[in-house]
Nucleic acid binder design. Sequence first.
DNA 1: ATCTATACATAGGCTTTCTATGATTATCGC
DNA 2: GCGATAATCATAGAAAGCCTATGTATAGAT
Lengths: 109, 109
Amino acid sequence: MGKKSELLPGTLDLLILKTLSRGSLHGYGIAASIKRISGDLLTVEEGSLYPALQRLLLQGWVKAAWKVTETKRRARYYTLTREGRKQLGEEMSQYESMITAIGRVLQDA
Amino acid sequence: MGKKSELLPGTLDLLILKTLSRGSLHGYGIAASIKRISGDLLTVEEGSLYPALQRLLLQGWVKAAWKVTETKRRARYYTLTREGRKQLGEEMSQYESMITAIGRVLQDA
DNA sequence: ATCTATACATAGGCTTTCTATGATTATCGC
DNA sequence: GCGATAATCATAGAAAGCCTATGTATAGAT
């Protein structure tokens, strides 16, 4: 029957950019952070996350560097670029106006 | 570069079901209603709308009947079924919990 | 030793939405 | 009457986005 997405489609980039705006993180950490902060309601699957990060890299909104985690594992840390910060602002305001518009349609009466 | 969608992807069915919950409408009218109520922020393209209506028909959430409009044109009027009303309720609460969860991630701090 | 959790990555598929196109007909301005 | 515009339905094909499944590797716990 086709399960529903774990996310609202179209919001993944925004969620990642916002998460990185709080500080650099590796991919696994981004997913964990989104899951935790959302109260377990949002799950970013690895098959969605890594391609998304590639897109963000390509567009220059994040940059990446290999490092070693506190737990001694190699991981790629992503950092928001200046462009990425700008993009985040734009996506935030677009998102908010979308949500407002949808809210109007969904409200009773 | 790929323009952004006119909608938040994944919300179209919900918008249509909600619109029909206010009364039967034909396709063109559904699109017009969503556009108007959203303050012109949401535009449902015909190439999105009609396939979506086919899906809703297939799933039994709406039914359709040909009629003549006030302006003497033939049009297919869609009506929410009982199942459709149930589905609307489910999608509403899913949507709201998604939005809440996303809001947590997007809020500062 | 084996299992679990951490960590990255890609391929293939499905669903949804968009663009483009096409057809029909009522109404309005000229 | 004629041409333009708006109303109305519909489909095909492409593009995008997310998921499932899979593969690799290693640190730490049992």
